[in-house]
Amino acid sequence: MSASTTQSGRGAARRRALTGRAIFAGPGLLYITLFMTIPVLLVLVYSFFQRGRFGGIVWEFTLENYVRAFEPVYLNVLSNSLVIAGTTTVLALVIGYPTAYAITRLPKRWRTVALVLVVLPFWTNFLIRTYAWIVLLNSEGPINSSLVDAGIISAPIGLLYTPGAVIVGLVYAYLPLVILPVYASIERLDRQLIEAASNLGASRVRAFFDVTLPLTLPGVMIGAIFVFVPSLGNFVVPELLGGGKTVMVGNLIRDQFLEARDWPFGAVLALFVISLLVILFAIQAAISRRINGTGKRYAAKQVTHA
């Protein structure tokens, strides 16, 4: 009697869980599958077929598109992109890490203000933020004119339309995405560990490199991925601040889809970006597991701010 009651109770609970999943998560998961997963898989599929004459696809299997990516022209763009995205990432970390560290040292009330001020620019129009740098770096712009006024240079110098301008624009765009995860990882670090290192004879610099840095590495990695991958795929900054002279993977992909109408080759290039993302996340997960066996829900948490 009592056994059957609990059994039907358990059955009801299971039914309720399934109903809950279907009602609540069902529509969303379906939507994501339809409008993200299938489209991305489609990109994968397209990469193995031939291009149509006016865009689109001809259903004949080929590995041609992959072979093409190894042509010197494209290898050049790829390596150039990696260098620019890499430089951007390093710069963003060099600026972002100490800033995040400084924020953790603020009184609690000011910490929130400081964090909101970091996120705020990120939520504003990306084109507008890039446009601001066109104004700043212009030969008639404030940077050049104040340098001339100060007598540091005699005539305006070409700041705009250089790889440097592209890097500055990318750092500006993605700096908030470095600061947040790094902040979170420093905030989470047990301060007593640094005291312990100091107590055992480590100088402040030594304690930083032996304890703080390795233990915040998972956060640093997340920040690095959040800068590196979107930098690779960005075509607006190279175009507006690089003046089209700096070509990155993002520009190539854009051109293949909208101008050259070679979707399969564009798909191969997009897969390159996606696989980098996946590989980097896998490395990040491995590192955070190695360090403290946690960090699973780490990436997901950061999305709130991204």
Binding site: P39, V40, I253, W263, A267, V273
Partner: peptide
């Protein structure tokens, strides 16, 4: 569920176009 927020916008864009 959170993947669409992390996937690069350009990749999502061409996928949807296709």
């Amino acid at each position: 569920s959170l993947a669409p927020a992390i996937i690069p916008d350009l990749v999502l864009a061409i996928g949807l176009l296709a």
